[in-house]
Design a protein around this nucleic acid. Structure first.
Lengths: 157, 157
DNA sequence: TATTGTTATACTCTATAACTATA
DNA sequence: TATAGTTATAGAGTATAACAATA
């Protein structure tokens, strides 16, 4: 069902509006592709005790950027109060540290520990593994193309 | 912050792993683009008392496909128990009807009413309006290209 | 025996407001 | 006066198991 639009409606049924085809709807395709991506990523991350949100925090903490919790919140589109809980969890497991920001005594800088760096490296490899399945329908060039188009949507500037 | 990778880390900081750049990560860009899309769509749909999930149900109900609740669940990646609540809401507001499936007395077929068709038409127009903003960074050809690439990811067959 | 719709339940995710300490 | 982190809480979204009617 829903593979292609039926060319004729059932006799007597109210006429459906024209362009009501979710298979061509960017919002719908985006949501569905993301659902597959998140499910696959979470499966790959479960081995490491991570989910997409905690993994994203860990990746940025391991990037060398030394983000504050506020930076993490705005970059990852999370509420600051959610970052607290996520960093709490990662810190208790020894994957990240909260370090004082020398330039603002209100702020914490979140940095991955050595264990955190090792963990994110292994997690990344596993995510790449499931990505091969998730994006199996695309060639490498198409995946690169998709990345560029999505970047323009995700970061409108 | 995070606009481009810093070329040099702070002295003495642990060396970050190489390809830890979320700005090039398909999973991350997909999630972020979807978050923007959902927020914009929900804002456009609020006027009509809809959100993306109830809107999706209504769109399929208005498509002439005459889906069962089970069809809706699998196509929209929802649990059948969620479809119950969503269809309840739409039915109570007179936007869809549950009709008996002549070929299976267990199943309901979900069909948009005349009011539902009118509503989905107006909602669609408003969603198209915010889409112009959401995808403003893309030309029409690029949006079409993105649609095709996402379709291959969202429907792996 | 399997499937459709349904109910109940719990768990995750997300959003909001208020507080404290610093700026 | 505004901002960073925190706490508490409620709402939305999601997942699971079990049940009655029907296949």
């Amino acid at each position: 069902m829903f593979g292609q639009r039926s060319s004729a409606s059932a006799v007597g049924a109210p006429e459906p509006a024209a362009e009501l085809d979710l298979n061509s709807d960017l919002n719908f395709l985006l949501a569905r592709a993301t659902a597959l991506s998140v499910a696959a990523s979470n499966a790959a991350l479960a081995t490491h005790g991570l989910k997409v949100r905690s993994y994203a925090i860990l990746v940025v903490a391991a990037s060398g950027e030394r983000p504050s919790q506020r930076d993490l919140a705005s970059f990852l589109h999370l509420d600051p109060s959610q970052v607290v809980a996520l960093v709490d969890d990662l810190e208790q497991r020894g994957l990240v540290e909260r370090l004082p920001d020398p330039r603002d005594r209100r702020a914490n800088v979140v940095v991955a520990t050595e264990l955190g760096l090792a963990t994110v490296g292994r997690a990344l490899a596993d995510v790449r593994g499931v990505d091969a399945q998730t994006y199996a329908g695309l060639t490498a060039a198409e995946a690169e193309q998709l990345t560029e188009l999505l970047r323009r949507v995700a970061f409108p500037d």
